[in-house]
Design a protein around this nucleic acid. Structure first.
Lengths: 242, 242
DNA sequence: TGTACATCAGTGAACGCGCGTTCACTGATGTAC
DNA sequence: TGTACATCAGTGAACGCGCGTTCACTGATGTAC
């Protein structure tokens, strides 16, 4: 009954999630989870290996919850990737405020240099958004830099909100920071007449990146240059962008 | 021997600080601190009340350390408060990177709506800096708003840096965010010819705030209006600023 | 179709540990006469 | 100056607890003949 086992596992995670939301990360002990889920301790160890395994899966569960909650809102705007950046910011902050304990499990830095994998997935989501913006020439700086800046600012805004008592929370701080930061890495839609060297170089670079990393080359995605030539070209593009 | 007791207390805090820096907050248990400091458990309880008392004093000790480290760098620039904002940002981030465990004790949100008092003191430092900027007409938004935005962005940048492995840390992210955010709340030095309504209104408001809250009125700091008049005036100033 | 065996998720019970905290007591210091 | 007493920081030892984890075992399920 593989099916049944997966259901039990799922239920254990739901119970753990509830404990986390109600009592913070301290409330999530192997014993508390096992007891609340009506499961014996060794059964839990068989499922998740050890406590760390449980927490990792719990973080993944939280990320899945995030995606489920925001599914429809996450639909991409066809021709305005920058608008998606604004929406992405708000969804991120909103999730953090709604689920502070989960957010801290996913984004709270426990040890220097160690990030939970769920945060990586969320990071990937942001990178995809920014790559799309770069492809349409809306990015003023390289994707990597934009990612770092937006990530730092978003988590800062969210954690600051979480740290405040619910009564004195002020969402305009997040909105203000959002507008400032996103504006600083994006450009207005380029008018056909004007030639913005930097953003066009970045747009081409993003397209190259995409073509090189995507598995199966579709029409228009083959790079007809040699590897060394491509590398040199991308180096020049970076220079034009800088 | 009150002197001696204070020295012991100090030494216990130093030992606790060392444990914190080496092993993170988990390493700071009452037993571990007592043992490492060569003190019995009840002695430690007599000194700090309970574990929470110890942690609170430890956070305060960390803030004191911050001030000591940065003492000379914190000297204010006489006529450019905005430059001080830049410097303050860098000092903050630098401290966080140098002392991640302390930083997380001081700024890491443990429970929603609860902030350690040491963070309040650091917050006060920022408010003072911004009030000075407002007084010279260099602020584009009210002090309160500027504080929130800068605080969120600074902690976000610092925590992001701490979360990265030391090898892949990139200080330009912090610098970029710093420039963007500070520029968004400040203005260039006002030229005498142009009359920037908003920033002048804010400058007057900041001066009023100062005059009202400072204990002993010095020359030029008395407010000759009635309370209700002052309140109305400040309301108008806020409107002009908005 | 029936029996013998292997696999393995789950059980009941316990392991040792480090934790925060507190007990009854000691012994040094300061104070009053 | 000397004695009696009060104060109180510090001692040695223990409290009970919840923790992560593991033991030997059961019993249901699936597989081979």
């Amino acid at each position: 009954m593989n099916e049944e086992r997966r259901a039990t596992r799922r239920q254990v995670l739901e119970v753990a999630a509830q404990l986390l939301e109600e009592g913070g990360s301290e409330a999530v002990s192997t014993r508390a989870v096992a007891a609340a889920a009506g499961v014996t301790a060794p059964a839990l160890y068989r499922m998740f290996g050890d406590k760390d395994g449980l927490l990792t899966e719990l973080a993944a569960y939280g990320f899945e919850m995030y995606l489920t909650e925001k599914r429809e809102a996450l639909a991409l705007t066809p021709d305005d990737p920058v608008a998606d950046l604004y929406r992405g910011w708000d969804l991120h902050v909103d999730f953090g405020v709604q689920h502070p304990a989960f957010y801290m499990l996913m984004y709270g830095t426990v040890q220097p240099g160690r990030r939970p994998p769920a945060a990586d997935e969320a990071h990937g989501l942001l990178v995809r958004l920014l790559r799309r913006a770069a492809e349409t020439g809306r990015l003023r700086v390289p994707v990597e830099q934009a990612t770092r800046v937006i990530h730092a600012a978003t988590t800062g805004a969210t954690l600051a909100l979480i740290g405040e008592a619910p009564s004195e929370r002020d969402l305009t701080t997040s909105a203000r920071l959002r507008d400032t930061v996103i504006a600083s890495v994006t450009t207005d839609p380029p008018a056909p007449s004007e030639s913005d060297l930097a953003s066009r170089a970045l747009a081409l670079d993003a397209a190259l990146e995409n073509a090189l990393t995507s598995g199966s080359p579709a029409v228009g995605t083959e790079v007809p240059l040699r590897d060394t030539e491509t590398a040199l070209l991308r180096d020049w593009l970076q220079q034009l962008a800088g």
